[in-house]
Design a protein around this nucleic acid. Structure first.
Lengths: 351, 351
DNA sequence: CTGAAAGCGCTTACAG
DNA sequence: CTGAAAGCGCTTACAG
């Protein structure tokens, strides 16, 4: 009677067959079922038995319980992915690349949006670790990040993507920001610009810092000496933060003819400020972004920007991580992808 | 000697403590550790013992093995989310809403990009089920979807989001497409348009079909009788498919003054065709989109569109699903969210 | 209030 | 080539 009740209330669980069920149906022992269903051990069995087991499993619609297998093998074939903000359009292509590679190897991604708050990130990572992820991809790291310390101490295979940490203790996949900024500055210089400013990102992020340094280095190489008033740093990589910093930049350096921006979202913030002031782009000011995120070819004017191969970033990160998980490689590998300049309509010769 | 080797090669695993370790350190039995660490059963213990266990766990940095717990309790506190395309900007906000609600309840999302291919979707779902997800959110469903049949048969708690299936056998969270199209048509009619066409989506998706019906119904209510040449359907919800269908529409119905489009991505495709033909928007043609996806306020001209609360869609879907998982509710609930019209610069009085 | 035992569903040395 | 047993790390009736 009791059994019947259970049968009624959770039918789903009830209809889930186990190795035992398959074993009974095929007339073999459970261990034989396990061996028959695993391609790597199947050859140890007689073909006849293997076929019988596979048939029995198919007839029942048997789906192995991956949790039980993971508990036993100590591999979950699950990877945790920690993002600061999934609505930032650079992350979906990264995620797509990650997933494509992981899926090939039968891995699944547990994706967590952790924001920028450190405590929240810590909590999220602890939950992922509790679920026994085999490795972690972090897109959240700051240049000095206590969370990386913790992960290293815990011994979790770890790859950081898009951003790297200052000490490079951990494998990373990033874009060559120095080259990116050089392309941007060269482009404006080539158009005739000599008063070029930089709308930068947060300096606690490798992208913010690297792009500022890239800008300064490229500017100096052209004999330009950007005064400190030609530089303004945003508090985050968002359109809103871009607006605020762009406002300050235009206040302090009204005679700029070109601005190299550390990120497309910031560039959109600059667009907002230009529109609010009735200034035209590229008429009054040429603007170069960074990322070539989706749809910046559709904004007005279409944004000249530095293209980063985000999908490839995700693919490489997944490959690095899987090698780490399998013990085929060690940490501390930095993959640096070459960006390109995409010239659109936001840049022109200076006024 | 052998032990030492193991100790060296997988340090991570080695340093993971278990209930046994905590039990030993606190001088209690493993079952007591379990009870002390679970807030729901803690009260059964003397405060002194509970405190001792909690302290011991903290000292060791003990993180419970969620897989083992799930195997035992038959709840994984994991939800599978199946998307057709994460790079479609409508999905990140949905995901954000889902995750926010799930995280509150200590659930984690396994996100899988399954594309539009049915076999691939089936594979992806099987993998998620093998990992014992407690429920599934599908953003992939077509109006008649064999995958839904399978899930129902398997007895998995299930919610569909953004799109619904024709039979409404499954709980869904969608936007009111009829109302959305009515807002769009009313807006153009109010501006003076009488030759209004529809650039529609695939009719095997509820959104494509519902928006076409909404368009026709609203048009008829104004006494308009859109000829079949005023309607053109795209093969998918992408900018590329939008371009192709927009090309056909402008060929067949060059005298239209306004077009209501089933989706912003399609509207961008229409923009592309207008640009290629040297036609201006809204000068030659007024355009209304659908979704208000991120950054359509930045395109040229800023797109008038029907705003869908995608984040809320995700939140509601998570809530529905959790109630289903807990047996607090039954399936077959349709949540319909009210959209709004956002008027920007792509619509004006007819030429 | 706490302990001892059983068992979730697998896999894998160990036999034979 | 196949079986029987042990065990992954938890939780939860069942005792007392």
């Amino acid at each position: 009677m009791k059994e019947l009740e259970i049968g009624c209330t959770n039918k789903a669980v009830n209809e889930r067959y186990t190795v035992q069920d398959v074993a009974k149906r095929a007339g073999v022992h459970a261990s034989t079922v396990s061996r028959a269903l695993n391609p790597a051990t199947r050859h140890r069995l007689s073909e006849e038995v293997a076929a019988r087991v596979i048939a029995a499993a198919a007839e029942l619609g048997y789906v192995p319980n991956g949790l039980a297998a993971s508990l036993r093998t100590r591999r979950s074939e699950t990877i945790g992915v920690v993002l600061p903000d999934i609505t930032n359009p650079v992350f979906p292509p990264i995620l797509q690349g990650l997933e494509a590679v992981l899926a090939e190897e039968r891995y699944v991604a547990m994706v967590a949006n952790a924001g920028s708050d450190n405590d929240r990130q810590r909590l999220v990572i602890e939950r992922l670790l509790a679920r026994q992820v085999d490795g972690l991809v972090l897109a959240t790291v700051t240049r000095h990040d206590a969370i990386v310390d913790q992960c290293l101490k815990a011994g979790v295979p770890l790859v950081v993507v898009n951003r790297s940490e200052a000490d490079h203790r951990v494998s990373s996949v990033v874009s060559d920001d120095l080259r990116g900024m050089r392309l941007a500055v060269d482009h404006l210089y080539g158009l005739g610009h000599r008063r070029i400013g930089h709308l930068g990102g947060p300096q606690n992020l490798s992208t913010g810092k690297g792009r500022l340094e890239g800008f300064l280095s490229a500017a100096r190489d052209h004999g330009l000496d950007p005064a400190s008033s030609d530089l303004e740093l945003a508090s985050g990589f968002s359109r809103e933060a871009g607006r605020e910093a762009a406002f300050r930049l235009l206040e302090h350096a009204p005679d700029l003819t070109g601005v190299v921006v550390a990120n497309d979202l910031l560039a959109l913030g600059l667009y907002d400020v230009l529109a609010a002031r009735g200034l035209s782009c590229p008429g009054h000011l040429s603007v170069v972004g960074h990322n070539d995120m989706p749809f910046v070819d559709m904004v007005s004017p279409p944004l000249t920007t530095v293209r980063i191969r985000h999908r490839e970033m995700g693919e490489q990160a997944a490959q690095l991580l899987l090698r780490l998980v399998r013990g085929e490689a060690q940490g501390g590998v930095d993959v640096v992808l070459k960006p390109d300049l995409v010239v659109r309509a936001s840049t022109a010769a200076p006024r």
